[in-house]
């Protein structure tokens, strides 16, 4: 079949997948906040685009079996403002609130962000800390991949060519709170390093570090140490474990050394903040 150009607005997912399958130069576009910026810089030159806007079932948040489903085409703004992300799942809403600025939040979508997998993005560590999974659709069906396994390398995910992220699923949140601590040069910038953390009333802690490696950094061992106790020594130990797992880049926002140094400090700050807010 000849590759067609142009901007396509299919109304169903099977239609979208079919067009995408027609050639390598045909790309999906969600909010466009990252893709159009790259097109403007000449970094990507798609031959055709398939818009995910308006496809049934791809936008919006809903309660599903006690958990929360976030459609891929849900704007950052809607995730920031939703009442559905309670308890430990609120880490995802806190991350959404700190993405870029209000205008960008009107445009960007969680599906687009997750598929792009820029290591400086805010959603990936929040989704890992929240225990989220990513639902992927292909012409042959759909599957779910845990967020921790979905992000594979720099700008690389488990998506195969022609596949689409269609939803993010969060498990039933635990009573408690979540926090996304973003350290950046100015508000609205990408994070130099960030901490996504949840603290349940039960004491269980889950943490993921962003901006310090190809993928979010999480450690079951560090989580267990902090879940057992959140003393200064425990937090330092956990911070050391996470810092050792980091593989930060040197760039204009900071050196690798600086980022590694930040991790235990931001972790301590985040956990102390959570403890204070939860009152335990």
């Amino acid at each position: 079949m000849a590759t067609r150009g142009g901007y396509h607005r299919p109304s169903t997912l099977p239609e979208a997948l079919a067009i995408l399958g027609e050639g390598e130069g045909i790309k999906p576009i969600s909010g466009g906040a990252s893709l159009v910026a790259m097109m403007n810089a000449g970094i990507v030159e798609p031959t055709a685009l398939v818009s995910l806007e308006g496809i049934d079932g791809l936008a919006g948040l809903s309660s599903v079996d006690g958990g929360i489903r976030i459609g891929a085409f849900t704007r950052h703004r809607d995730i920031a403002e939703t009442a559905l992300l309670t308890g430990t799942s609120s880490v995802v809403a806190d991350a959404a609130r700190q993405i870029g600025n209000a205008v960008v939040r009107n445009m960007g979508t969680i599906g687009g962000a997750v598929a792009h997998a820029d290591p400086g993005l805010d959603f990936p560590p929040a989704l890992v800390a929240a225990g989220a999974s990513v639902e992927i659709a292909s012409p042959t069906g759909s599957r779910r991949v845990a967020a921790g396994a979905f992000f594979v390398d720099w700008y690389t995910t488990r998506l195969a060519p022609g596949e689409l992220v269609i939803a993010i699923h969060l498990p039933k949140p635990e009573p408690g709170i979540g926090l996304y601590l973003k350290h950046s040069r100015v508000a609205g910038d990408f994070a130099i390093a960030s901490v996504a953390a949840t603290l349940a009333r039960s004491g269980r802690v889950r943490v993921a570090i962003g901006g310090c490696g190809p993928t979010p950094i999480a450690s079951e061992e560090a989580d267990e140490i902090m879940s057992a106790r959140r003393s200064k020594e425990a937090l330092e130990r956990a911070g050391g474990i996470l810092s050792a797992l980091a593989d930060p880049i040197d760039d204009v926002r900071g050196s690798a050394e600086y980022r590694r140094m930040l991790i235990p400090r931001l972790l301590t700050q985040a956990m102390n903040d959570l403890s204070t807010r939860l009152g335990q």
Binding site: A41, P119, I249, V252
Partner: peptide
């Protein structure tokens, strides 16, 4: 695009 990542 991603010069820091390119070195990695």
């Amino acid at each position: 695009f991603a010069l820091g990542v390119m070195r990695k």
